[in-house]
Design a binder for these strands. Structure first.
Lengths: 299, 299
DNA sequence: TAAAAATACTCCATAGGTATTTTAT
DNA sequence: ATAAAATACCTATGGAGTATTTTTA
């Protein structure tokens, strides 16, 4: 992991056109982002963003910097690639794991691209629920895994990967709602397909609804199913809504089979985490981690 | 000034093939260099230098990194250039100064290249002895200057530029010595052309000779002259030696008109310094400072 | 044994956090 | 009134220093 973090902050702000959103994506705070940008601006003696109150935009100098910064990052990526090549870490066995949602919707794509870049690397991949995966890490049966939240196990090191957002979706044909943003009260009138009791995802959803004073018993739960895939299939054929991870519905959103409905006042977020035993710095797992991060930041 | 300092450390070590020499050039200590290289090596999971006791050499991974690092630095330089272009700091007036040696031997070359890069910038250039130049800074008659040493003036900010070395030279035809390294005793047998009493340069020389127990009165001072140029001319036609800044004799060394004789046990160094009033960060002087630094680090 | 790199510590500058204020819609 | 950026202040980590030890030619 070698690069100029200040430039990365700049690129992220330029992409999101928001200091706050960039801070969120980078897992730092908004004042930290402000300071990085200020520092860059004073080093370059130019404003990079024009701040017009609530909206910001790139200045010409900002555009120039963005162009170069991209180049610089490409160069850093090429560098790591060449070094990896050279040191022969492009062969060997990578033992990784992931919890359910990640294993189904996030990793397949990454693994496919990774494998095409490093065909000689043998991948051993395990999936299961978070507890199972954590146990595999502790038993040193896998080197690295991706899970959906932090369970604060003392032997395990947690490192954020990307933010996940859980959103309310309905099949596109559903005509009960004609706006993409709905009020909390309206939510109570929509039949829902939910995950089963005991699901971590369900807890996160209930917790978020609690902040706007909606209690589980007030919801019109039409059915409880034990997998994301079943829920997706179910809502395709009914007027039910469902709370799903944005990562599980990218294809359906593109096809316009499903549509997102934002609920005023709530934002259900969690962060996917890399987990490893403390103090690990093995070449192959590091390479893979870096690869994952690049995948979500630059593509 | 925007770049990845750790990569700069690497490049410097690769160029000098010595941690200690690199530390010296970068104005940091050898342990700091060691730590930077170790950190890079662990981030890249590869050794970059093979240390064989007293000598080090680049590993294949080190060579790859060097190639990319150069590219990255070129990109950073292009970036600053484009931004400068854009923000129109390529026009305006730059008020600078320099003390004698620098004004005669170092700046002309830099100014010529600078001017060809930024033809619209008007340069006001002053030279004089260090006190005079410092007074101009304090009176805000110039924004930035280069001097040969630190006089610790409280209103002035000193920032190192490059190291200067003062060496013993003789005209190449001088056949009294047949080795390029001579012993301190031999020095006492060579007639010398020295700077006049009161010259800062002379003080530095006497100070260094003092460390090997040579006192001014022991030297065979043939003549005292009040300028570097006079001394150079004088020794061309005699068998005298002289102590001169390496920066003042680059041409004569290339032509082989003069030759360096190292004196075992001494190393007469001083550091050229940028001076400014405290807290200055004006665009044009910053651009010029950066330009000077790049000139000596990458060319 | 001498010259250079590594190691062990100490210190401080700066990156980052929290809390709050300012600003513009 | 709200949402976002700026500011003020505090904390802690990592980069740099000094002193010393280890290594090998």
């Amino acid at each position: 992991m070698i690069f100029d973090f200040r430039l990365k902050v700049f690129i992220t702000v330029a992409k999101k056109l928001s200091f706050t959103k960039a801070a969120n994506e980078l897992f730092i705070t908004q004042p930290a982002v402000t300071k990085h940008i200020n520092e860059l601006e004073s080093q370059l003696h130019s404003r990079l963003f024009s701040r017009n109150g609530s909206t910001i935009s790139l200045t010409p100098a900002g555009l120039v910097l963005l162009k170069h910064a991209d180049q610089i990052f490409k160069q850093y990526a090429a560098l790591e690639n060449d070094i990896a090549q050279l040191t022969n870490i492009e062969s060997g066995t990578l033992r990784i794991g992931a919890s359910t949602t990640l294993a189904q919707y996030v990793l397949p794509r990454i693994l496919a691209i990774f494998k095409s870049n490093y065909p000689a690397i043998q991948i051993n991949f395990l999936h299961g629920n978070s507890e199972f995966i954590e146990q595999q890490i502790i038993d040193d049966r896998i080197d690295l895994a991706l899970v959906e939240g932090i369970s604060h196990h003392p032997q395990i090191n947690y490192e954020p990967f990307v933010k996940d957002e859980i959103v309310m979706v309905l099949r596109s044909g559903q005509r009960l709602l004609n706006k993409s943003e709905i009020k909390p009260e309206q939510l109570l009138t929509i039949p829902l397909a939910m995950r089963e009791q005991g699901s971590g995802t369900l807890d996160v959803i209930y917790e978020a609804l609690h902040t706007i004073n909606i209690h589980p018993k007030d919801l019109l739960v039409d059915i409880q199913l034990d997998s994301t895939e079943s829920i997706k299939q179910y809502i395709m054929f009914t007027d039910c809504g469902a709370f799903l991870s944005v990562h599980s519905i990218t294809k359906e959103l593109q096809n316009k089979e499903l549509a997102i409905f934002e609920i005023k006042g709530i934002d259900i977020q969690r962060t996917f985490q890399f987990i490893e035993l403390h103090g690990q710095n093995k070449p192959l797992p590091s390479l893979f981690k870096r690869f994952c991060l690049n995948h979500y930041n630059f593509k």
